[in-house]
Design a protein around this nucleic acid. Structure first.
Lengths: 258, 258
DNA sequence: CGCAGATTTGAGATCTGTCAAGGGATGTGG
DNA sequence: CCACATCCCTTGACAGATCTCAAATCTGCG
């Protein structure tokens, strides 16, 4: 059975994601909350993870936006993904104890540290929760697959429209207010580095969407005006974002939530 | 302590990868072999996983080459990664019970089926092994990060050189004969779909490397002629392929191999 | 031989990057 | 309040990269 949202609003995005699985129960959430002891605030533009850092903890995003990226010596930068509330940063990287990427905040942000040791405990102490975290990691991998195809096989306009629709749907899922959906704190330089193009071309591409009344810019934020036409423009297929149900055999093996 | 290679040659690539961790012992390998019951042969050009298939098992590559990819309705295709012996296909996808990608063999291939149920068992029955598999998955994710960067932020020549060096190093790791290293069963159409370019441009790019005596083509295979200069050409940084040591606290928690 | 698939090349159109410059908003110090 | 710096958005011009279309060549195979 689905759980009601936790009173603690700051933690709800992760719970919302896990709730969608209809799989964890209150005791799992208690275990999770126990593991997420250290909470930490960041300002916009701060580094959370340095490239090539040794990594002894992973982070859970409670609020705010961040980017995960790689840079070259010559200054080129590729953003691998946008991190939103409910996302987990570097679940595997922490197992390897090394970050091959940097993480930087785009807005004020609340994060919860997830010590490496806890990750190993969790599989024995709360196998259902461990599976749920693996589930989230799987979601992240599916998004990364889509990022490869977006950058590799779509035109500039398609790339941008596709990213916008993805972000919109991810906001919807984590329970962002309807009126706040489709508003992104992204600069055009950041868009360029996500989509693998120069910032000049990112501007031209955005202006083109803007001329077609698909997106606009106000108060430092990108605002989507017509999701449906954006999705049409890039033949958006939302299946890679969908949350599949938990198979029955898995439920049988691990036991249903209370 | 490192284990000696298993007598069963066909299974050795996976063991080799796991051996590098110096982490699993004989009983772990026995457990692994027990899980990999169904072995299956494929011809070149066969489908292993259909796009949008329901997925009730994952596969371990024992020998041969394959690609994991996505296609569009209009025929565009993006190859997400090259699969080599020792790689695991869709470890997370199987948890989600759905493949958002296809897998197709490039050569004759031996695969071992890894039933979904076994994945859930393994974390309780052989936690060290479960961790080792997570490790491998982490390696795969790091490669995917690099694929995003390669496609998004490198020139055509850099992309191709970078892919070649990666494949060479991966062959080295899994114990391919020195004389066989740097020989790839890849067509230029496949190269194009990995690197996010047209096959015409893939040809021109390859010809350019060929003119510089960096790579050549013989008997249907690409053959690298000068790894060092290829690596220089794309400022190759091998750190994303390196196998970090198992942290001491992890060893302490799970116990050392016998 | 004839076919299918793969490589190769040329020509022209299109896309994208680089360089350069200007404008607007914001913040700081005088 | 102004001067100034900074950051971001915007645009034009041009060079270079890449795509598409088309066709020729080559190779393995039945």
């Amino acid at each position: 059975m689905k759980q009601l949202p936790t009173p603690d609003a700051a933690r709800s995005p992760l719970h919302t994601q896990l709730d969608d699985l209809a799989f964890c129960d209150d005791s799992d959430f208690k275990t999770l909350d126990g593991l997420l002891e250290r909470r930490q605030e960041f300002e916009a533009g701060q580094w959370v993870v340095l490239e090539d850092d040794e990594l002894d903890r992973t982070w859970v995003v409670l609020s705010g936006w961040a980017i995960r990226f790689k840079t070259f010596e010559d200054g080129r930068r590729q953003i691998l993904e946008i991190l939103l509330p409910g996302d987990i940063i570097g679940l595997y990287a922490v197992m390897l104890r090394r970050a091959d990427f940097g993480v930087e905040t785009l807005t004020r942000m609340t994060l919860a540290a997830f010590p490496a040791a806890a990750l190993i405990d969790v599989s024995t102490r709360a196998p259902r929760l461990a599976l749920a975290l693996g589930w989230l990691a799987g979601q992240g991998e599916r998004r990364l697959d889509e990022q490869v195809t977006r950058v590799g096989r779509r035109s500039a306009t398609e790339r941008m429209a596709h990213l916008f629709v993805e972000l919109y749907l991810r906001q919807r899922r984590i329970g962002v207010e309807r009126s706040e959906c489709g508003q992104f704190p992204l600069t055009q330089v950041i868009l360029a580095d996500i989509l693998g193009m120069s910032h000049v071309h990112a501007n031209r591409t955005f202006r083109s969407l803007n001329r077609d009344s698909l997106a606009t810019f106000r108060d430092g934020r990108i605002i989507l005006q017509d999701i449906v036409r954006l999705a049409t423009r890039c033949q958006f297929d939302p299946s890679y974002l969908e949350q599949p149900a938990v198979p029955e055999d898995v439920q049988a093996t691990l036991g249903s939530p209370a």
